[in-house]
Design a protein around this nucleic acid. Structure first.
Length: 426
RNA sequence: GGAAGAGUGGCAGAGCUGGUUGAUUGCACCGGUCUUGAAAACCGGCGUACCUGAGAGGGUACCGGGGGUUCGAAUCCCUCCUCUUCCGCCA
């Protein structure tokens, strides 16, 4: 959620930011409406406070009068208070309505992009920030896509998943299950040695939590929902991890806050079809290790690059072909100010698969969840939040299988071998 | 799931027969005096958000959340949530 103060003080910059993010004309028109509505809010607040101040004073007087036995005088004042109370009731309702309308409008505005974000509408407009420094693997004619490899070596059963649940819920078996577990441990260990604190959060969260990180109301349809208990299945560990610091005032010495956690992620992915959802490309349930940072605003972009380097190091250790994209304004998520996507090459499919997305949200999330810190001047300010996948498993498994396949099996990268306990899938 | 009790400022802990109580006090924390230095002692400060003001300051709201009674509620009533204890169930 954008800060209303920024909207008012820096209107032109906000508008040009919204345009860069391909906001609609309706969204841009909201800016002026928000400003005038907030002015209205202030007037009402001032009037209301004045009336409440008067009633408070009169109530005190009434108390004193009653104690000194001047009941008739007190009764006189009572009617005066009653009139003021009617007035304040009206203003209170107005204030509530204005605040609701304001929130409703502000929540519709996406975050504004960082200056380095390239202009553009679609995925094709993203900038290749960094490409792999090695040659793309040449797998030859007989290379198989991961879903065929999974079947050939009995690693994953998509069919069994359909029986148990439905499409998009694969069942991992044998060396495939072991590979999953190995990757989870490998990624967690890497994060821990980079200084992240490991967290095991709940997989179901309440409305407040889903709202604070921006999943509600924006992505309501994307989440699985347990109606009976009013809980949402998390679409990413970002949600519970970041919310650990909801409604908090940090000291400067608390920075940096570095959290990591492994969780399954649940996404409805309604409307996806075709080659997009083939095999492990897009699932309703997949495993992911997330890294979350809460930072001082002066440090957050430095931190973002640190996270990018961390994710890159993982892909290098797994010996996977990758590229890093700096997302253009139109392709960025609603919440983000700057996002780097990581893609690995699916050699057999001839396409790039997104395996990580590392973003700085600046104060967009912290404003909604009231995550502040006390700055040197003693004032509270909003902290910056960041997060990234390090990494998302299913697609990593897909490209790992494809890129490391040889005639008689699939080679396991050296870094992963201590975790798998085998060096070859056969 | 059933029964009883409880939720107050960073923590501990008063207030809860309604009226200068945003809230006694202790600890923690910050500044100062004293000291060669430290500790102790003493003095002072010490919540958040919003409105207003150039500023100093002034005002409003908040004692788990929401609603109600009343001129006036941390204090009374309703409701929800959470915690503790006992019972039931159970990985």
């Amino acid at each position: 959620m954008l800060e209303i103060g920024n909207i008012k003080e820096d209107k032109e910059r906000i508008i040009s930011g919204l345009k860069k993010k391909n906001a609609s004309q309706e969204q841009i028109d909201l800016v002026d409406k928000i400003i005038s509505e907030d002015d209205k809010r202030k007037v009402i607040q001032t009037n209301l406070d004045n009336i409440l101040s008067k009633t408070n004073k009169l109530s005190d007087e009434i108390g004193i009068l009653f104690k000194s036995g001047q009941a008739s005088k007190a009764t006189e004042l009572k009617s005066e208070v009653a009139a003021l109370k009617d007035e304040s009731k009206i203003l209170e309702t107005q204030l509530k309505d204005v605040k609701e309308l304001l929130e409703e409008m502000i929540i519709q505005l996406p975050n504004t992009p960082h200056v380095s974000v390239p202009f553009g509408q679609k995925a094709e407009d993203n900038e290749v920030f960094k490409a792999w420094d090695k040659a793309m693997p040449d797998l030859g004619e007989n290379a198989l896509p991961h879903w065929e490899l999974a079947e050939k070596y009995n690693l994953i059963s998509f069919k069994d998943g359909v029986t148990l649940t439905g499409s998009g819920f694969p069942v991992y078996k044998n060396q495939g299950a072991r590979l999953q577990r190995a990757l989870i441990n490998f990624f967690l260990d890497e994060a821990i040695s980079a200084g992240y604190q490991e967290i095991q959060p709940p997989l179901l969260v309440n409305k407040e939590t889903a709202k604070a990180t921006g999943q509600l109301p924006d992505k309501e349809g994307q989440m699985y929902y347990c109606e009976k208990d009013d809980f949402y299945l998390i679409p990413t560990a970002e949600v519970p991890l970041t919310n650990l610091y909801r409604d908090t005032i940090l000291q400067k010495s608390d920075f940096p806050i570095k959290l990591t956690g492994y969780t399954p992620c649940f996404r409805r992915e309604a409307g996806s079809y075709g080659s997009d959802v083939k095999g492990l490309n897009r699932l309703h349930q997949f495993d992911k290790i997330e890294i979350v940072r809460i930072e001082h605003p002066d440090k957050s972009y430095e931190t973002l690059m640190e996270m990018v380097n961390h994710v890159e190091s993982l892909l290098k250790k797994l010996e996977l072909p990758y590229r890093i994209l700096r997302l253009c304004g139109g392709d960025m998520s609603f919440n983000s100010a700057l996002t780097f996507d990581f893609e690995t090459y699916s050699a057999a499919q001839g396409r790039w698969l997104e395996v990580s997305s590392v973003s700085n949200f600046e104060t967009f999330q912290s404003n909604r969840m009231k995550l502040r810190f006390r700055d040197d001047d003693g004032k509270t300010k909003l902290a910056h939040t960041l997060n990234g996948s390090a990494l998302a498993l299913a697609r990593i498994v897909a490209t790992l299988l494809e890129n490391h396949q040889v005639a008689d099996g699939i080679k396991i990268p050296e870094a992963l071998q201590p975790y798998t306990g085998y060096n070859m899938i056969k």
